[in-house]
Amino acid sequence: MKLKSWQMALVVLSLLALVGVGLFSGRFMIYLAMRVMILAIFALGYNLLLGQTGLLSFGHGAFYAAGAYGLGFFGLHLSSHPLLGLLAAVVLAAVLALIIGFFCVRHTEIYFAMLTLAFGMMVFSLLWSAREVTGGDDGLVGIMRDPVSFFGLLEIPIGKDRQYYFLVLAVFVLSAWAVQRIRLSPLGLALSGIRENANRAEFAGLSVKNYRLAVFVISGAFAGLAGGLETLLESNARPFMAHWGHSAEPILVSLLGGLQTFAGPLAGSVIFIAMREMVQRFTENWMLWFGIVLLVIIMGFRGGVVGVFQRLIGQAGGGR
């Protein structure tokens, strides 16, 4: 699929805007933009599972937490190199996703959702209870942002938020690009086939279970990456990251933006964070308002924001 010119323009403008935020914005704006990008990485990866393959997981918080704690342990005990830490986060999350996914992908629909919920909460309760190792409800604290060093030749400091912002931006752009490549790859097509008709996919010669497991691991790895980035940002890892309430976040974000589009989770992340900030500034009742927005989307605009936008473009461009 070739990008249309307006889509290309949108991509370039967004990138410029993101660079601009990093260079000229205030601290708070920079912080928010990082939260948006981290959530977007989580949601983009997750949406390979939900939007592309049609599997609803309520346990991806566990992989987010695996990334967070993985980076934390790695940083506290082995090496505080941020990139190595992120690599450790991704690997640990992927391994955990491989183990949990192995058990979960035999089931679909509600059973898959419930199994992932159970496994996710298992991880949560372990993090919560094993106080000596994980710090219990306080989590892991005191994780530092050491400079990114390239074999001692070049050191890029990321200690300040404004510096760290560009690392997050780079990882975000790479992730978005990778996810889009996967979506448009032969694997991506096979995954949509599995979503549309798993039985036919088997008869097309696809081992549906293995493909489901593969995408489970991929989405888990992105969750771990997001978790690692958040831990570097907040300098702590908390058990709540594995809670099902957090696992629901990428679902909500994808839904907000639009499930079966690439831009959906991106738009959803921006709206989610922006809306939360605005609502929380004026009222205490963020949950109420978010619940109402969700209701409206599910009842009337299931394509999400991007879906509505596409419909408008479609009408303007040809009245279909």
Binding site: L50, G54, L56, E109, I110, A113, A248, I251, L252, L255, L259, E284, N285, W286, M287, L288, F290, G291, I292, L294, L295, I298, M299, R302
Partner: peptide, 22 residues
């Protein structure tokens, strides 16, 4: 689809929990 059904009821959780607080 299933996700929408689950999330609709989830939206009500958010709304009711918050209303109780109010």
């Amino acid at each position: 689809a299933l996700p929408y059904q689950l999330l609709l009821t989830f939206a009500f959780v958010l709304i009711f929990d918050n209303l109780v607080k109010i």
